[in-house]
Design a protein around this nucleic acid. Structure first.
Length: 508
RNA sequence: GGUCCGUUCAUCUAAGGGUUAGGAUUCAAGAUUUUCAUUCUUGCCAUAGGGGUUCGAAUCCCCUACGGACUGCCA
């Protein structure tokens, strides 16, 4: 029990894209492993052949890589406890199920899915809930209700059967959850879960316990939705005689919808305008596209940072952390117990913080594809200079274009409100005069432009605001943007003058 | 319905018997920016309700309310 190597696993089922909650589970496992000098493994729980979704496993792996949560062991990652895909471990589970039958912890159940469906709907119409348990098992079709001869006969004649756990009667099972403390269940309320399916595959419960044991997992860190099955798992370890090395459990709180009730689901993101998946996902069946944080322009560091702080906090007032820092200070006892609502606004703020930390030259690298996609060729030096001017008004790389497109192409239209407010009858003549002044400005840099512009303005006795605002309108198409003289400089003399004259033509 | 988990500003959270209940996001106001955004300053806003225990409770106990998860030959 002491000196045990820390080994944790992230064990998703490849039934679709990895959800934010899943990423956080992976992250906490990863951080716990790093913090304690242990191993982080990826295990694919693909025991349900009916829910197989092509591309899901690849998606999971790509997501983990994008987030920087690279497993130490896993399918495609090496490790000496493999295989790490449960479908490839299929053969090992039968013997463990058999072991439980032999020791009286499990039994054969011959009821067909149709039988059970019928029982469930009958119970429902009677306002009850059917459960296959110690209270009903004797009246159902299984090796506890049938005679040994009948059981043997059925099995030998090839009848299909499942193997169910024989839940003990009237037993308090207490689990010590690392996040919630001790939680007690009485087996009287628990049902006889299927451990081994008639298709020859184990269910989650069996496969999970067997694999965690075989892979020497020390801590099971998973979502709160698994808390109700903790007593079953504890009993399974007991039944197998593995209690000495049973992993410790930690059940993470859920991530809730931003508004309303319930946990975050795929639909919410599409409805509320933010992604719930790390990467874009295209449903192979329907072709539906779900957006991803990566494609929405989030930096993976920001994504990890914001997810880490959902349900965990360092106990200090620091909020910005690299994954490296998190790896050094993460601890399960600072995980909160209650579910947390995801706040898209704060997510944006995190991304902004990361963007602001980057240099203009780094951002130019991220921004280049945007220019490429628009077929624009701009000198890197110029791009860096432009980003330097507008960076502080951006939350995302894409905002560089939104907030600074006018540096790359002339405004196609002029903001109506601004025109109405700033474009006076005398404006065209004033603009033409400014264009004239600009023609003689040398050298063409912000300081000189400002100087000569000001001199001219003072000579004329014109009101600065009355001229600067329409001039801005000419150059950028609205009332936004950085220092006007810097814009002029970056645009170049010829372009600036051209835009003024173009605006005189086009406005009104 | 049953079992289990949870409940501090609108949101993420701090405070593990003694603080004017702190920070962050959002929002609002002011300053700066001859524009807009940024930035800065300030402000608004919380212990679900009721009982205990205690000199003293957000913190411990009980009840209620509300929220959530689970209740599949899914994971």
């Amino acid at each position: 029990m002491t000196e045990r190597r820390i080994r944790v696993r992230f064990a998703p089922s490849p039934t679709g894209p990895l959800h934010m909650g899943g990423v956080r589970t992976a992250l906490f496992n990863y951080l716990f492993a790093r913090k304690n000098g242990g191993d982080f493994l990826l295990r694919i729980e693909d025991t349900d052949q009916t829910r197989y979704v092509p591309g899901a496993e690849e998606y999971i792996v790509e997501s983990l890589k994008w987030c920087g949560l690279v497993p130490d062991e896993g399918p495609g990652f090496g490790g000496s406890y493999g295989p790490y895909r449960q479908s490839e471990r299929k053969e090992m589970y039968a013997q463990y199920a058999q072991q439980l039958i032999d020791s009286g912890w499990a039994y054969y159940a011959f009821d067909t899915p149709e039988d059970l469906d019928r029982l469930r709907s009958e119970a429902e119409t009677a306002g009850q809930v059917f459960s296959y348990s110690q209270h009903t098992r004797r009246s159902l079709c299984n090796s506890l209700s049938l005679s040994p001869e009948e059981v043997t006969e059925r099995i030998e004649s090839g009848a299909s059967y499942a193997i169910r756990f024989k839940m003990p009667e009237e037993l308090d099972v207490t689990g010590d959850d690392l996040i919630r403390g001790s939680v007690t269940f009485n087996t009287r309320e628990l049902d006889d879960k299927v451990l081994f399916k008639s298709d020859g595959m184990p269910t989650y419960h069996l496969a999970n316990v067997v694999d965690d044991h075989l892979m020497e997992i020390s801590h099971v860190i998973r979502g709160e939705e698994w808390l109700p099955s903790m007593p079953l798992h504890i009993l399974l370890y007991r039944a197998f005689g593995w209690e000495e090395t049973r992993p410790q459990f930690a059940h993470l709180p859920l991530i809730l919808k931003p508004q309303g009730k319930g946990k975050l689901s795929k639909r919410d993101g599409d409805k509320l305008g933010f992604p719930v998946f790390p990467l874009l996902w295209k449903d192979p069946e329907t072709g539906d596209i779900s957006r991803g944080y990566r494609e929405d322009g989030y930096f993976s560091e920001a994504f990890i940072n914001l997810i880490a702080l959902l349900g965990w906090n360092p106990g200090t007032e620091q909020e910005i952390f690299s994954i490296k820092e998190l790896s050094e200070i993460f601890s399960l006892d600072r995980v909160v117990k209650s579910g947390s609502r995801f706040d898209p606004e704060k997510a944006k703020w995190f991304n902004r913080s990361y963007l602001q930390q980057k240099t203009a030259s780094e951002l130019a690298e991220y921004f280049q594809p945007v220019l490429d996609s628009k077929g624009l060729t701009v000198a890197r030096e110029q791009v860096v200079a432009i980003i330097d001017e507008i960076k502080d008004r951006c939350d995302f790389v894409a905002d560089i274009w939104t907030n600074g497109y006018y540096f790359f192409e002339a405004p196609a239209s002029y903001d109506e409100k601004t025109v109405a407010k700033r474009w006076k009858p005398e404006t065209p003549a004033e603009m033409e005069a400014i264009a004239g002044v600009f023609e003689s400005v040398e050298p063409w840099d912000a300081t000189s432009i400002k100087e000569q512009f000001s001199t001219f303005m003072n000579e004329k006795g014109w009101n600065f605001g009355g001229v600067m605002n329409p001039l801005r309108l000419c150059l950028v198409g609205g009332n936004m943007g950085p220092d006007l003289f810097r814009i002029c400089e970056l645009l170049g003399k010829e372009e600036a003058i051209h835009r003024i004259r173009m605006a005189i033509e086009k406005i009104k």
